[in-house]
């Protein structure tokens, strides 16, 4: 499979999945606010966005196995940067919550923070071609 085809397939999956994830998250929040569902049902329904989230990581995994080694190197650096940022925020803010009464940060935000950090990092690491042709 060519890099272009792999990228198209990846984006063709990840963009709708992101929209579905955000939509499912808002639907859960709305259902909770309106007390439409009992807590056990909310637990059950929360499987939907979790499943979407896992499918996004699966699509990313597949993409990384399909592209060439240099593009994979960029993806690995982007994913690792996202991991560093998420772990730093989780631990750093956790200490502040424990010892400095910092406002509570929901761990829900770690997933969006990861994807944002990963995306910015990939853009940062993607080389600007110096010598054309």
């Amino acid at each position: 499979m060519t890099n272009e085809k792999a990228t198209r397939r990846y984006l063709g999956f990840i963009i709708p999945a992101t929209i579905l994830f955000v939509g499912a998250s808002f639907a859960l929040k709305t259902a909770d606010n309106a007390a439409m569902l009992p807590p056990p049902a909310l637990y059950a329904v929360s499987i939907v966005p979790v499943g979407i989230m896992l499918s996004m990581f699966w699509a990313h995994w597949r993409y990384m196995t399909e592209i060439d080694e240099f593009l994979r190197f960029i993806q690995v650096k982007g994913a690792f940067t996202g991991l560093i940022i998420v772990m730093t925020i989780a631990s750093g803010w956790g200490w502040l919550e424990f010892y400095a009464d910092a406002p509570r940060l929901s761990i829900f935000w770690l997933n969006p923070i990861y994807w944002i950090a990963y995306s910015v990092a990939v853009l940062w690491f993607t080389p600007r071609d110096r010598a054309a042709t």
Binding site: D68, D129, A131
Partner: peptide, 17 residues
């Protein structure tokens, strides 16, 4: 069968294949 970015990165010494 690699991307042009890959050739560019290897050629300019920014990536060792």
């Amino acid at each position: 069968d690699v991307s042009r970015q890959s050739v560019n990165a290897i050629e300019t010494g920014r990536y060792d294949p």
